[in-house]
Amino acid sequence: MDEDQKKQRDEMIARANVAVQGAAIEFVSTLNKRVSDLEKVIIQNDREMAAEMAYNIETEASTFGWPRVTRICKWLRKVFSGEFDQKPEAEVVLKALNALKLMVADPDHPNEQRDSDLFQELYPDLKNIVSDI
């Protein structure tokens, strides 16, 4: 790749990064509502829709830098699509959902330390049910 091509490529990537930042702002503004919608579907016991919604939030959260939200949603996706090692108890699902709700309660001001502690506390229960999270 010559200098001109490299420069052109760098410019393309810089423009795309700006576009991704714009999408990240939009994602944050909808995160709370999306998790609330996921909760409603779980309460209605619509497993298929719950798995799909959890997958969507999982992939978006991973794209925009929300690692713990990503992992809890991955766990929920696996639980609702039946890919678990041990049948989950409702209490654990509720705990995971509550942790998720707290993490996204004020997405403009995320609390890294609180979210990290919360996830550490939850992790053994989640891991027992789905080993690959």
Partner: peptide, 18 residues
Amino acid sequence: DSNLFIARTLFSILEAFG
């Protein structure tokens, strides 16, 4: 992609590439 948010993000990336 049924996830329109991800589809739109990919669209924005490709659009930025030209």
